Simulated assay, not measured.
Amino acid sequence: MMWIIQSVAIVVIWLSFWSLIPRDEWWIRGADFPRLQILVLGFIAFILFLAVDHPWSWASQLIFVGLIAALAYQLKMVLPYTFVWKKQVKQVRQDQLDPQRQISLIVSNVLTTNTKYHLLIEKIQTLQPDLVLTLETDQVWQDALAIIEEDYPYRVPVPLDNLYGMHLYSKLKLSNTEVKFILSDDIPSIHTTATLRSGQTVQLYCLHPKPPSPTEAKDSTLRDAELLIVGDQIKDLDESCIVMGDLNDVAWSRTTRLFQRISGLLDPRVGRHYINTFHADYPLLRWSLDHVFHSRDFALVHMERLAHIGSDHFPIYLVLQTGRIFEHLQEELEQTDEDEQEAHEAIAEGIEKAEKEEKPVTDEVAVAYKEGAKYP
């Protein structure tokens, strides 16, 4: 019995500190994802260590100390996304609600092969969000969603059959819309400006980079670089901003936290709860892959994970409200010179990798990095 407990503890220790290795290969970065599962296994091993009678040899003591260190590290990573942590984004009080300054949105990775179109359509028609971002949508999905087009006069369709198509539907006026292929000629992103009912404009960035996995990208280099390129664009903006999509990364990963510090955007999940969207079919194997980050002038009205739509992802639904009062109450994460340097290096590595794979780099910020204009 004891050797099983020790084996589980060793696996928890190994996976916990494996993720600290500063490498981009999928078999290393993959350890970022199941932190909750690792934490549960660790606590089970911890309890059994104390409950089961056994001799406390030097090896057993060493494993136990390592297990405590691993649990402490995992708790440090996941506790910010629970109610015990300070909220990063304020809740809008009832007396502050102003629909003219609100924006509601659904983000849904639909799974291209999913044919239960009606389930997502029902949620859109019930909630009537201002924005609907669909990911993995091809021409078949575009045709199926044509029924909502009457309610969404502003649309940005990018139907692709490579699992990276995306569509943005909007009740709000969209302007300055661009579909960019930042580091890969088959991975689009949507960049546009939405105008709220109050007349205020909001910059929107819709992303869906490739995940590090044996069947997709062999490493996270291009994913990380794309996210940080967008973050670098945002940091120089003095405008309201929302980044949303399936980032194929978890909120507590090194890259996502670096993106937040570089961009200055906030995460409404911090201090509240997880929004574990993937995998919808396996309750014990879920983590947050779908995200909405926003500028400091937004506060939270409502946030929830919606019910199963037949995809491997759950949709998420958020309502945000903008106001200068929130900007004064909310603090962005502090950025350091080391963060800036790390972001520069990650972007440069991504550009170099893209060029080696003969993918043209055309994004203006990426080109600026390539030409050295952005380097310190």
Rank of each mutant, 00 (worst) to 15 (best):
G30R: 00
Q37C: 06
L258K: 00
K370M: 12
M244E: 11
K123C: 00
P315M: 04
E358W: 15
R101I: 14
I106D: 01
I242M: 05
E136K: 11
L127E: 06
D267Y: 07
P214F: 07
L67T: 00
E216S: 13
D53Y: 15
L120N: 02
R261E: 13
I262F: 09
T137Y: 10
L131E: 06
I316V: 04
M77W: 11
Q203L: 15
P55N: 10
R261F: 03
L135D: 08
Y154V: 01
P214I: 13
S253L: 11
L265M: 09
A366L: 13
L329D: 10
N176Y: 11
L265E: 14
D185H: 07
H294T: 07
I63M: 01
K86G: 10
F43A: 06
Y205A: 10
L163D: 05
I275K: 15
K235I: 02
A51R: 03
V367K: 00
F314E: 10
L163H: 09
V11L: 11
P159A: 00
Y164M: 07
L79Y: 02
L119D: 02
A70V: 15
S108K: 03
K359M: 11
R93H: 06
Y73D: 13
V11Q: 05
Q61N: 14
L204G: 02
E150C: 15
I347R: 00
P188F: 03
W252C: 13
D363Q: 03
Y152K: 06
Y369A: 03
P376N: 07
T126Y: 11
D24G: 08
H54T: 06
P268K: 03
V107A: 09
Q100A: 15
L285A: 08
T115E: 15
V65F: 05
A225F: 10
L50D: 02
T215Y: 13
P159H: 02
Q260I: 02
I47A: 11
G350Y: 11
D32M: 04
D219C: 14
P157Y: 03
I275V: 11
A69R: 06
L318G: 10
R272Y: 12
D98Q: 02
S104I: 05
E357N: 12
H302Y: 01
I262H: 14
E349H: 13
R23M: 12
R197H: 13
V158K: 00
M303E: 14
R93I: 00
H291I: 14
F83G: 15
T256S: 04
F83Y: 14
H313S: 06
K359W: 08
P34V: 09
Q203A: 15
G165Q: 10
Q94D: 00
T195C: 08
W18D: 01
L71S: 07
G323T: 08
A70G: 10
H279K: 12
R261A: 03
D130R: 02
I63Y: 01
E332F: 14
D151I: 05
S175R: 04
Y117N: 04
A346I: 12
L39T: 03
K171G: 13
L71I: 10
A31K: 01
T113A: 12
E364S: 14
T336A: 04
Y205W: 06
L48W: 01
S220N: 09
R23H: 14
L41T: 05
S175W: 11
E150Q: 04
L174D: 09
Q341K: 07
L131Q: 01
H291C: 07
L204W: 12
P22E: 08
L97H: 02
K353V: 00
I347F: 00
I121A: 09
D186V: 15
V65T: 08
G310Q: 06
S220P: 04
H279Q: 12
F49V: 01
